[in-house]
Computed example of a mutant assay.
Amino acid sequence: MKVAVLYGGTSGEREVSLSTGQGIIKALKNKGHEVTGIDFSPKRISEVLQLDVDLVFIGLHGRYGEDGRIQGLLDMLEIPYVGSGVLASALAMDKAKSKQIFSSNGIQTANSKTYDVSNSDWHKGIQEDVKKSFSLPFVIKPNQEGSTLGLTIVKEENQIAEAIKTAAKSDSIILVEDYVGGREVTVPVVGHKGSERALPVIEIIPKNDYYDFDSKYKPGGSEHIVPAKVDSSLTDQLQREAVLAHQLLGCDVYSRVDFIINENNQPIILEVNTLPGMTPTSLFPDSAQEIGWSYDDLIQKFVELSVAGKKQKV
């Protein structure tokens, strides 16, 4: 097939996307596809408009890639692509909206509140409301951003102002939520709509205090335990809730669902990643390896599911 890979982008996750894109391009070539790589930017949209391919593989992360915008463009151009559509992508990217959907369907989330920080004159009032609404420690982060960019774990009140300012650099809406300590796990999900399966649960042991950008993407930044050392009933619950979260948002082909297992051994959902990292140190490929899928096999699986799904729609 003729496949275009969009990677790079303009978000704070550009460097990760460059690595993801190179991995995907290599895997597709290894599987015999004719591949065109595009380091995407909205300023170079003409390259997408002129595409003559059978399929687009989106290797972008963050804004313009993971938020539904590029998916909308490809839909209008009637070019099939790998992964979730416009609405599922946008919902997953909007942490507050997705948390509302999860909690109303029985998936436990951390208590949270959103604030509009587009006007710096409002920040003082927001600080006061945060102090009244949350007990230390708590988390302040952009509502729509990935890879923990702009996130602060607030342990002292004098950190609030700076944490708001940091999060506001990435988004006009910030999310403040209770800090949930515990074991960090993630569950990859793959399959056609309605018949998805969860892959083995991965436990993440970061070298830093929490699973931050460096822990995710620097070699040796974290240890991945696959399968996670949790009992069978908790494993079943994590996998069941991961598939449910994927389905509730309307995700397609693949996603990765992040949880914290709290001190009471209960899973608290963090977010759904519709375009999880596919770098050499990424989590999804590690889990796939556990069931015998190589990196190349995994990428090919996504292509086959996407093509089959397109035929079903027609």
Rank of each mutant, 00 (worst) to 15 (best):
V187G: 08
D286H: 13
D231C: 07
K165G: 01
V139M: 04
G72H: 04
F134C: 03
Y295D: 04
P80S: 13
R256K: 08
A288Q: 00
C251N: 01
S215N: 11
G68V: 15
D296I: 13
T148Q: 05
A90C: 10
T166N: 13
M76E: 13
K29Y: 07
L283V: 11
V226L: 00
Q239C: 05
S133T: 15
V86D: 05
S17Q: 07
P267S: 03
E184W: 06
G221Q: 10
V53N: 12
L51Q: 13
P188H: 00
D129C: 00
V130M: 12
D67G: 05
S170T: 00
L238K: 07
L298T: 01
S232E: 15
D236F: 08
I45C: 01
E203A: 14
K229C: 02
S195R: 14
N105Y: 02
L151I: 10
H192W: 01
A92M: 06
G59P: 00
L238H: 09
Q159P: 06
E157S: 04
K26P: 00
V117W: 05
L73W: 01
K31H: 07
K313H: 12
A288D: 01
A27T: 08
G65T: 11
I164W: 03
I164M: 08
R240E: 11
Q127P: 00
S98T: 15
D52M: 03
I58M: 05
Q159L: 04
D231R: 05
S287Y: 09
K124G: 04
I153S: 07
T152Y: 08
E271I: 02
V56P: 03
E157Y: 11
F40Q: 13
V226K: 09
L234K: 03
E241F: 04
D296W: 12
V190S: 00
G72P: 00
P206D: 08
D171G: 09
C251G: 11
S170K: 12
K99N: 14
A242F: 04
G68M: 08
P276V: 04
S41N: 13
I70H: 13
D296K: 08
L18M: 15
S98L: 06
E290F: 10
T235E: 15
F213H: 06
K113V: 04
S170M: 12
Q237N: 09
H224C: 01
G8Y: 03
A92N: 01
T186S: 11
D297S: 13
N105G: 07
G32C: 08
A4N: 05
H246L: 10
V176G: 02
